[in-house]
Design a protein around this nucleic acid. Structure first.
Length: 456
RNA sequence: CGGGGCGUGGCGCAGUCUGGUAGCGCACCUGUUUUGGGAACAGGGGGUCGUGAGUUCGAAUCUCGCCGCCCCGACCA
């Protein structure tokens, strides 16, 4: 993408309303524009990141065997009366009437809809296990939206629902989700720690929240540093293997890690002091096992192998996709701007032409731009008539992890500069070698896409 | 919902107390000179001062109502 043909309204000054760093940087980098309290337009750069995150979530869900679909944002009130949540949900649910006076609501979550779909079409234990999910906009009329996309009223969320014949099978689904979530966050360059949590209004026996450590997090968290040393890396995982999933879940949930809701000071005190940490975290996901809480009242039953009608065991699982954009920035920035992890960066590499209009540098940039595209890399080419300082400042602000700088001085010696946004380190390379290096850097990220279903 | 604050060109602000015909910086447009970390100079365009009513010869400024937004708290992906 050529910057002169793009839409990137960066701001030099910080809008007054933004308090936390991710909100400030998202506004300054031209990623979002507020439409109303807690409601945002996603401008092109922000939209790109949102879609990158969404894609990773889709890929990892499907890798775990979960099935994508899409449910509407508007739902009929009657379904919620059936589950008993129409009144229970309170003013946080946005209620609307259509032209015929029928009561509708803008979905804050989808348990009712998915259960309705399930009971209409699934009748036998032979159709289980089944896990369906979608990524859709939600609306919760928060008392006080704040922190930009981190606590919006309208937000983009992956929510999934598993249906299993009994408790054991549902627990496997729970563990499988934990593993696939760990992998999802790792690909985004995040460490999200599963922490035992309260089930809250959704209810259930078992639940973990995934917390990203950050100063500005809304939750107080307590953990053993043993948990932050864990990494999935590129280990192969068989998601159908209940024991393997359980083992990995156990590995991550054995070290102490809890939010203030479930914190136990006595247990915490047993951890060696040098490993004890008290910090803050941003919740970026949660998984639940809730047994037959919805299936019973709503009649989501199947016939088991004895010919008996039994309620299915369910769980639900969420990832805050739009919130993750903010959470990643909270976890990865410096005084000059955002630092995107390679997995979610809006563009893989920035190309800076230091002497726009000079035939030699223009040509060198065009060649590099084409060579990067040929390698399947997304480049933001700053071809504006701006001075070097302005171009560097823009690149630093929007946080592309790698930058290729092309100027007459380097070209005289046949080199360009490849700079790492995170470390600030640069190396001088021939244009061909620079392209090659960037391609190498992104090879593992592109490898994730292999072996997945079309559309993933 | 309780408490606090703010609405003035796209952004950041001054002007409001003490009413007198709207200003600064950034951004934008034109030109010249610049060009490896947010350039300089010259010229230029853009604002019913959130909104409605009232007071007044005269309202961004005073009074009352309404709307919107932000911050702190209790709640949530």
């Amino acid at each position: 993408m050529r910057l002169t043909r793009y839409f990137l309204p960066v701001l030099k000054e910080t809008p007054a309303e933004a308090q936390i760093v991710s909100h400030r940087l998202m506004l300054r980098a031209g990623m979002i524009k507020q439409a109303a309290a807690g409601i945002y337009s996603w401008l092109p750069l922000g939209f790109r990141v949102l879609k990158k995150i969404e894609r990773i979530v889709h890929q990892e869900q499907q890798r775990a065997g979960h099935i994508p679909m899409l449910m509407p944002t508007l739902q009929p009130a009657d379904l919620w009366r059936e589950s008993g949540r129409y009144d229970a949900y309170g003013p946080e649910m946005l209620r609307i009437k259509d032209r015929h006076g029928r009561e509708m609501l803008y979905g804050p979550t989808n348990e009712e809809l998915i259960t309705d779909i399930f009971r209409a079409h699934v009748n036998s234990y032979k159709d289980l296990p089944l896990t369906l999910y979608h990524i859709q906009w939600k609306f919760r009329d928060e008392i006080r939206p704040r922190f930009g996309v981190m606590r919006g009223r309208e937000f983009y969320m992956k929510d999934g629902y598993n249906f299993d014949i009994d408790r054991d099978a549902a627990i496997h689904a729970y563990n499988r989700h934990m593993v696939s979530y760990l992998r999802t966050y790792e690909r985004m360059g995040l460490q999200a720690i599963p922490m035992r949590a309260d089930s809250g209004p959704i209810g259930g026996d078992d639940t973990h929240e995934f917390l990203v450590l950050a100063e500005t997090g809304e939750s107080e968290v307590f953990y053993d540093t043993a948990v932050t040393d864990l990494k999935l890396g590129d280990r192969h995982i068989d998601y159908d293997d209940a024991e393997e999933c359980a083992a990995i879940a156990k590995e991550w949930t054995t070290p102490y890690a809890r939010t203030d809701e479930t914190h136990d000071e006595a247990l915490f005190a047993q951890i060696p002091e040098e490993r004890r940490r008290r910090s803050r975290g941003i919740e970026v996901g949660q998984i639940f096992y809730f047994g037959t809480k919805y299936s019973e009242p709503m009649g989501a039953m199947v016939v088991n192998d004895n010919g008996e009608r039994v309620p299915v065991h369910m769980g639900s699982h969420g990832i805050g996709v739009s919130r993750l954009v903010g959470a990643i920035i909270e976890a990865s920035h410096d005084e000059n701007g955002i630092i995107w992890p390679e997995g979610v960066t809006p563009f893989h590499v920035g190309l800076v032409n230091l002497r726009q209009g000079d035939a030699q540098t223009d040509n060198a940039c065009e060649d590099i731009y084409k060579a990067l595209a040929a390698r399947g890399l997304e480049t933001l080419y700053d071809d504006r008539e701006e001075r070097a300082g302005a171009k560097f400042a823009t690149m630093d602000l929007i946080g592309l992890p790698w930058r290729i700088t092309v100027g007459p001085r380097g070209l005289k010696n046949g080199v360009v500069e490849l700079t790492c946004r995170r470390t600030g380190e640069s190396e001088e390379l021939s244009p061909e070698a620079a392209v090659e290096r960037v391609a190498e850097i992104y090879t593992p990220h592109h490898a994730h896409h292999l072996g997945l279903p079309a559309g993933a």
